[in-house]
Design a protein around this nucleic acid. Structure first.
Length: 749
DNA sequence: TACATGTCCGTTTTT
DNA sequence: CGGACATGTA
């Protein structure tokens, strides 16, 4: 074997080096946030390749996102030959690949469909309707079933162990669900993990093949694996046990979807003689940020004691900012970004805005759009979740898999084509009695009892149309095919007729869908199926474009594994973060705490924590109190600005200057929003009399006689002078407000 | 069968 | 507040 192209061990510290060079057997790396674990993974893989222990494609690397898998492959490729051939991906995508090959052993046709959670929920709903069961909501039942599957409990066992009528009902639905989904030749997300285990148990030869193929297995983010996933890696690794897992119990944030932190703690027991390494040196953040993170996460009830350290001891102290309303919070955050970007110190991509719930993104988006700042929202109201997109994807799924009744029922009335509920009911009945699919029922509608001749014709016509699209797929270019079939469905026509603003948007989305599949077809030869798979298994973060210079907005969950120079953790209010359910209970305080820890440790240089005393949610304004996480931070670990959550007496002992400039925090809720906005904008500067506020606000569209229209980026007041900076198309320009005669054109909100 | 109107509901985080 | 669903009517 040739020597390293680049010395792969160069630059690793002692702890990292030990982990990388660990030889055979099971290895657990307890890697703190920012401790360079991705690097360790890449070097470990390169090390295996270079030693000649395995070919790249004999190494399975499981990551939490496909993006992480790509990055890992690139890193390995940079230090080891053919490093990009490492089998890397998420559990779901790797197991799907395996199942396509082993479909016979799994008892499925090769082109089985993958149900996303929307499909699964629809199926649950159909079953509940059929069973005349209306005591429980489809969502609730679906998540119960999903949890059972994640714990590898089959329907029969579930029925046996049922304690209450509710359990029995769930067991019944679960059973029916499994039968139906199999009849539809489909697998849901959970099946993608549990079916391979079944295959391995029932077909030792198959297991033998894959165990031999994947001689080394590496798993990242091990704290967020569930039971099925642990079982999977254990099974594939087999007695050889060449398993290298990396995780951090402090960053376990997915227990609500079945992840088990215990997987980390039980690792040593399950793998006798496992080696354990700890990476506690942080390479990402400054010491003040780490101190703050530690002060909150160390209050966790259950936790492996550890503390990160860094050589970056000189950083800025994190800032906590209290605001009056959610709008003010948005304005404050966006103002700060504007100031940093304008001064040339930072670019947009240096900033991440993190929040607990997706719907918090909306206000930030509005503000950023109003100022024409480039931004990317990761996740949130996903393109693929839009109704029109899902409808067309439904057509495509059905075209690929005629047995997919869920897809057919989804699209048969979109757009309306003369097949209504009564007809569908008759088709469903016939299909059940004749053990066939709804697609078959369509084309054999003449055999279905109770249908009049008009209904029979409509059904058969639609069946033939589906068949035609199916045939067309074989001949035509995918993009062209997609374009044509969307037109032929009449979907576009209906939207055009509607003519509303909303319908325009939907048409635009469909156009985007066509260009997306066209682009996919140009780069891949996986066809429609490949496109659908990519679309269903892609994680939110996978769609992130990190080459673009834009502000990043995402949930705290989505931020895992990422890093940014400046991070805003927003909405730090009781009830919101930590988040309470409808019963006003925090379901898992430790996990919320860890989520906070994850968010905070994304920051490299600067960290801002914000909360608003007043927030609009579900169309109602609520008054909030500050998050206990903010209260737990020691006074000396954070600078307070704006409103202060503590009583006046306490405040005076803390930071008097902010108290004065922000103007009475405890009286804040009584103020009108206009005067509050003023005091917030004045935060940290001279005290401002609300009467002095100019008629122009940050975010306003203004007109200048010479430069034309622009957006107000910042307002600064120093003594008597008001300065205003405006972003024009050609760039930023600062004026003394009284002299520039800027005319407001339209106010932002 | 299709559409209009009214009502109810949930509203975390995601592969 | 917005979407999904139910109900009533053309």
């Amino acid at each position: 074997m040739s020597s390293y192209h680049i010395d792969p061990l160069k630059g690793l510290n002692g702890q990292q080096l030990q982990a990388v060079e660990a030889t055979e057997g099971a290895v657990l790396v307890l890697a703190g946030a920012g401790s360079g674990k991705t690097r360790v993974l890449a070097h470990r893989i390169a090390h295996i390749i270079q030693k000649g222990d395995a070919k790249p494609w004999q190494i399975l690397a499981v990551t939490f996102t496909n993006k992480a898998a790509n990055e890992l492959r690139e890193r390995v490729a940079a230090i080891a030959p053919d490093g990009n051939q490492v089998a890397a991906g998420t559990f779901h995508s790797m197991m799907l690949r395996l199942l396509r090959r082993e479909h016979k052993a799994a008892g499925f046709p090769q082109d089985f469909t993958v149900f996303d959670s929307d499909d699964s929920k629809r199926l649950v709903k159909i079953i509940l309707n059929e069973m005349n069961e209306d005591r429980f909501r489809p969502n609730y039942v679906h998540s119960a079933i999903s949890r059972l599957k994640n714990d590898f409990i089959p329907p029969d066992q579930c029925a046996e162990e049922a304690q209450t009528p509710r359990d029995t009902m769930i067991a019944n639905v679960y059973k029916e669900y499994q039968e139906k989904i199999a009849r539809f030749a489909a697998m849901d997300f959970d099946d993608l993990l549990s079916r391979p285990i079944e295959v391995f148990r029932n077909h030792p030869m198959v297991l033998n093949f894959w165990s031999n193929r994947w001689r080394y297995i590496l798993v990242d983010e091990f704290q967020d694996t569930n039971r099925v996933q642990f079982e999977l890696v254990q099974t594939i690794a087999g007695p050889r046990g060449n398993l290298f897992v990396v995780g951090d119990d402090d960053q376990s944030i997915y227990s609500w979807r079945g992840a088990r932190v215990e997987n980390i703690f039980q690792f040593k027991e399950k793998f006798d003689g496992a080696q354990i390494f700890r990476l506690e040196r942080n390479y990402r953040s400054t010491q003040p940020i780490l101190d703050l993170a530690h002060s909150v996460v160390s209050n966790s009830i259950q936790r492996e004691a550890k503390k990160l350290w860094t050589e970056r001891t000189d950083g800025k102290k994190p800032t906590a900012i209290g605001l009056t309303t959610d709008i003010d919070e948005v304005r404050e955050v966006v103002d700060r970004i504007a100031r940093e970007v304008m001064s040339g110190k930072r670019s947009y991509k240096d900033f991440a805005i993190l929040y607990r719930t997706n719907d918090q993104s909306q206000l930030f988006e509005d503000a950023l759009r109003a100022r024409r700042f480039p931004y990317q929202v990761i996740g949130a109201l996903k393109f693929l979740d839009r109704k029109e997109i899902r409808d067309i994807l439904g057509y495509w799924k059905l075209i690929l898999n005629p047995r997919d009744d869920v897809a057919l029922r989804r699209i048969v009335k979109e757009p309306p084509r003369g097949i209504g509920d009564t007809t569908i009911d008759k088709l469903v009945k016939w299909a059940r009695e004749n053990d066939s699919s709804l697609t078959e029922a369509l084309s054999k509608a003449h055999q279905v009892p109770g249908l009049n001749s008009r209904a029979v014709n409509t059904c058969r016509k639609f069946g033939a149309e589906l068949e035609k699209w199916r045939e067309g797929l074989k001949e035509k270019d995918l993009g062209v095919w997609a374009q044509q079939m969307i037109e032929e469905t009449g979907y576009l026509e209906r939207l055009e007729k509607e003519g509303s603003f909303e319908a325009e948007g939907r048409i635009g989305n469909l156009e985007r869908l066509v260009s997306s599949i066209t682009a996919h077809a140009e780069e891949n030869d996986t066809g429609l199926r490949g496109y659908l798979e990519e679309v269903t298994l892609a994680t939110d973060v996978d769609r992130m474009d990190d080459s673009a210079d834009s502000v990043f907005l995402m949930t705290l969950h989505a931020s895992k594994g990422l890093e940014f120079p400046i991070v805003f953790v927003t909405g730090l209010e009781a009830g919101l973060f930590p988040l309470e359910n409808q019963e006003q209970q925090v379901e898992n305080m430790d996990e919320e705490r860890r989520l906070f820890y994850v968010g905070v440790t994304r920051a490299e240089d600067e960290l801002f924590l914000t909360y608003a005393k007043q927030r609009r949610r579900w169309g109602q304004t609520r008054y909030t109190t500050v998050s206990n996480f903010l209260r737990e931070i020691p006074k000396e670990s954070v600078n307070w600005e704006g409103l202060h959550p503590y009583s006046e007496n306490q405040v005076r002992t803390m930071s008097l200057d902010m108290f004065q400039s922000g103007g009475g925090w405890d009286s804040s809720t009584r103020n009108t929003s206009a005067s509050n906005s003023a005091s917030i904008r004045a935060t940290g500067r001279a005290r401002v009399n609300p009467d002095d506020i100019p008629a122009i606000h940050v975010g306003d569209l203004v007109e200048h006689e010479r430069y034309g229209q622009g957006i107000v980026a910042t307002l600064t007041r120093f003594r008597e002078t008001h300065k205003v900076t405006v972003q024009f198309d050609h760039g930023f320009q600062t004026f003394v407000q009284d002299k520039a005669r800027l005319q407001p054109v339209k106010k932002f909100k």
